[in-house]
């Protein structure tokens, strides 16, 4: 592991937000931490960038000025224009004229923000704000890009553009750690950490997580919940049999990543 968290415990106020979590991050592919509100995702990233002091465990990160970090609710100055945001950020990192011009032009092109150059941050749409925030974090070509829920509430078109921006940074050798509440976004990752209540329920590549599904999965129609380990999938039910024996009438299916994530959560609940 180049960067990342190793067996980290961390508190937020009085609550234990992370109870021994490992999040590997390196340039070989994106790391995506997926979980609901309160799972500990922001704390993970806070520890990674050095804003939250862990109680135990190891943290590997580059020097502060080699990190680009976008928190969940900010990342740009809403009372500055797009251009002023770029200039201010470039000044803060002490970028030379030539370097900043080239990088800023590239970011403007990739984000489609050139048309809004003189618009105040507060007057940008939610999707544009997120794109600008990610663009600003990339301006100094960081070694480690850390993004807290960059796509939450963003529509699918802007979301695809954001992922293009993030993937392009990864393709240029930047190590990337991203959190999301959308399970399907985890499929983009080289490494996924599924977080719930401060614990990693599963981690590995999407394929690893899929291959690690224990027991059997099936599908059945009906309005009544067929077994305690069942959940809705459209109009039908998905049934998970931890011991591998599906009830009569339940048709076996190959689980997909969505199933694997629910099963990991159910298994966590069973184990508690």
């Amino acid at each position: 592991m180049r960067w990342g968290l190793e067996n980290v415990r961390a508190r937020r106020g009085r609550t234990l937000a992370l109870a021994g979590v490992t999040v590997p991050v390196d340039a070989s592919g994106m790391t995506v931490v997926v979980g609901g509100d309160g799972a500990g995702k922001s704390t993970c990233l806070g520890v990674l960038v050095g804003l939250v002091e862990p109680q135990a465990g190891a943290v590997h990160r580059p020097a502060k000025d080699r990190i680009g970090y976008v928190p969940a609710t900010a990342g740009l100055y809403t009372d500055l224009t797009v251009q002023e945001n770029l200039d201010f950020t470039a000044d803060a990192y002490g970028l030379s004229r030539g370097k900043r011009g080239q990088k800023a032009a590239e970011i403007m092109e990739r984000t489609g923000l050139a048309v809004a150059r003189h618009r105040l941050g507060s007057r940008l749409s939610g999707g544009m704000q997120r794109k600008l925030a990610v663009g600003l974090a990339l301006l100094h070509s960081p070694d480690l890009l850390v993004l807290d829920e960059p796509t939450t509430g963003v529509d699918p078109v802007s979301r695809a553009e954001l992922w293009r921006l993030i993937s392009a940074a990864a393709a240029e050798g930047t190590a990337v750690a991203v959190t999301t509440t959308y399970v399907n976004e985890a499929a983009r990752a080289a490494r996924v950490v599924l977080l719930e209540a401060g614990k990693a329920l599963a981690s590995g590549s999407p394929e690893d997580i899929l291959n690690a599904v224990p027991g059997a999965v099936g599908t059945v129609q009906g309005t009544e919940r067929p077994t305690p380990q069942s959940w809705r999938r459209g109009a039908s039910w998905r049934v998970w049999a931890p011991a591998g024996i599906l009830p009569d009438g339940v048709e076996p299916v190959d689980p997909d990543f969505d199933d694997a994530v629910v099963i990991a959560a159910l298994a966590g609940e069973l184990g508690r």
């Binding site: 509100d37 509440t181 959940w231 994530v261």
Partner: peptide, 8 residues
Amino acid sequence: GVGPLGRA
């Protein structure tokens, strides 16, 4: 914003 189990 709901986790996988809550969502299910």
